[in-house]
Design a protein around this nucleic acid. Structure first.
Lengths: 192, 192
DNA sequence: GACGGATTAGGACGTATGTCCTAAAGAGTG
DNA sequence: CACTCTTTAGGACATACGTCCTAATCCGTC
């Protein structure tokens, strides 16, 4: 019933379209066209559009966990790991300039729709937040760790929003350097 | 034809609803219900929904200009003026936690819709950006002025996005203090 | 009070959408 | 080949939406 090839394709296309066009603005016809199936076929795999959204959020949660796992495999150094997160802004620069941050724009849209999946979408933020907090704790930031994690999240969200508005590559590059510099200083302070 | 009482009410209600529910997700029926007029009456004042959006953006531009003028009347001190901008986060805290930043969420939505009014909506950002840059220039930040202005914009945008996601009052308050502290340090650096 | 332009109400129209239903096609098993 | 369960196609259905049209109402002026 679930977890077939078509199921995965629907989720993948919906994921992409929700990111590029927004959830509300993406129709079944859009997804069907991209997957190459008929419109009526959705209801064999999903009971409603909201259920597709839930599956997309699940997929994003899984992707995020995998991404974090890859960063953990990349380096043991907490500061280096935090830099991995910051580097998303560069690695996905063109997509971010075109469509913003996938997490931030989705949570914003769901907040306006008063959608039930809001909490689930926030879970993606929380995945990053908790992991970043852990890295700051390992750096000795103690009680400040969560605040630092939130600062990194907020900073990157702001950069994504303005990058999307102005499509300015240099701005993104400069801010990434600035965040990295702030991080270095913060690590020094915490270690002291 | 234009600029009547009904016209103003439509723009005011649309402005409010676009903020709370999003542009795409707000229908003529919604606006009509809030203003108390019939649905078909819109087309006497506006040729299309996009024209309402344009009027809303015009109104927001005017409001922003008025807000900036009020700040300029409030104090001559550039640092104090920048603090006025930062203080929006506190003055409109509950709305921001409920619906995000009106500017950031609108530009994000229009970007996803590939809407023609995207540029006009960015103009609101630019109003703040140019004015903030001017204040930094007067503080002696020189070539760094625009970067500092963008940083203040980005920071506040990020705080708004996360405030909307987590609805955490303390987080907003802490970040405002942090930005203010950063500003003080930056002013010191520039003056030196 | 009568006229005329400004404004409004109400509904028609075509389209798009989410949802649902049913018949057909596909795939695997005996 | 026959049977069954899974999967798909295609369209029906009600609803909501943006747009447009027309008749009615308001209101200031003569």
């Amino acid at each position: 019933m679930s977890d077939g090839k078509t199921f995965e394709q629907i989720v993948a296309s919906a994921d992409d379209l929700f990111y590029r066009q927004g959830f509300e603005n993406t129709s079944f016809a859009d997804i069907a066209a991209e997957v190459g199936i008929s419109r009526g076929n959705f209801y064999y795999h999903f009971k409603s559009k909201d259920e597709i959204l839930n599956a997309v959020i699940e997929a994003r949660l899984a992707d995020t966990r995998a991404m974090i796992a890859a960063w953990e495999a990349e380096t043991e150094d907490p500061e280096g790991r935090i830099c991995c997160y910051i580097r998303i802004l560069l690695d996905h620069q063109s997509e971010i300039m075109a469509h913003g941050c996938p997490v931030g724009t989705l949570t914003s849209e769901l907040a306006k729709l008063n959608h039930q999946a809001q909490g689930a979408a926030n879970g993606i933020f929380t995945l990053f937040r908790d992991w970043l907090r852990l890295q700051f704790e390992r750096l000795g930031c103690g009680a400040e760790s969560d605040r630092n994690a939130m600062r990194v999240l907020a900073w990157s969200q702001g950069v994504a929003t303005l990058a999307n508005a102005y499509r300015d590559e240099d701005f993104v590059r400069r801010e990434v350097e600035e965040i990295t510099g702030w991080l270095r200083a913060r690590v020094r302070d915490c270690a002291a």
